[in-house]
Simulated assay, not measured.
Amino acid sequence: MKDEPVFDFQQAIDALRERFEFDLVSIAFVQSATDQFVLTWQYASGNLNERYKRIVLHSGKGLAGIVFKTGKPVLIQNVAEELDPNDLFNYPIIAAEQLLSVGAVPLWKDSRVAGVLLAGYRQENRLTSSRLHEFQQEIEPSIGPFLTKELEEYDSIQ
């Protein structure tokens, strides 16, 4: 049995960030069942600091947890208008990276959500549904072993 070549996720998200002029692109992967299927941010491009590495999310919690649980993309065009400031602690990547316009899409492998790809800006209303749709179409050839499965309307956090 021949080993598959290792995919360079860092290079892929660097290229996506540059192509779409995002301030941040990051990937969270689901950890094993022994880790209770938590999500952790593994790769980041354009990050302000290393805090993303310490964020651990459970299914349904945080932006990545919501996308993981529902299997659907989420778009927050304006964090200040769409999220309660008292609720931001539930979205640690948004707070840590000072994102004001953000979207996240599921990465599918073998008919399961195996990861979440997040992209965002540090200015409000920069990420629109059409821009996120365009980004989502670009993911499949860019993120190697993963698929985006379906292009659909985005869920709202509210």
Rank of each mutant, 00 (worst) to 15 (best):
A80L: 08
R19T: 15
P85R: 00
G115A: 06
N125H: 14
E18I: 12
L63N: 00
Q36L: 13
S156K: 14
G60K: 14
A96R: 08
D84T: 01
R51T: 03
K61R: 15
W108E: 02
Q31A: 09
R51Y: 10
L99P: 00
L132R: 04
T40P: 02
F9Q: 06
L127Y: 06
A114H: 06
Y43L: 07
D35P: 01
D110G: 11
E152N: 14
K53W: 12
L63K: 00
L147M: 07
P73M: 06
F89W: 15
L100E: 06
Q77A: 09
R51A: 05
D84E: 03
I143S: 01
V38Q: 11
S142Y: 07
V74N: 03
R131Y: 14
E150P: 05
I13E: 05
I157K: 00
V56G: 02
Q36M: 13
Q137A: 13
K149Y: 13
H133P: 00
S101D: 00
S45T: 04
E152T: 12
K61H: 11
E152Y: 06
Q158F: 14
T34C: 07
P73K: 14
Q31C: 07
F29C: 07
V30C: 07
N90A: 08
Q137I: 10
L147R: 14
L16S: 10
G46H: 08
S142D: 09
L75H: 05
E140Y: 04
I27S: 01
V113P: 01
A44L: 06
A119K: 08
A44P: 04
G120F: 08
R54H: 15
D35C: 10
Y154R: 12
K2Q: 13
P145Y: 09
E4Q: 15
G60C: 07
A28K: 04
N49M: 09
L48E: 09
I13F: 05
P73T: 05
V102N: 00
F68G: 00
R126H: 14
R19C: 11
K69N: 09
K53I: 09
S101G: 04
S111F: 15
S26I: 03
R122H: 13
P92D: 04
E138V: 08
L75Q: 03
L75D: 03
Y91V: 01
L83K: 02
V56Q: 05
R131N: 06
K72G: 01
S156N: 12
G60Q: 13
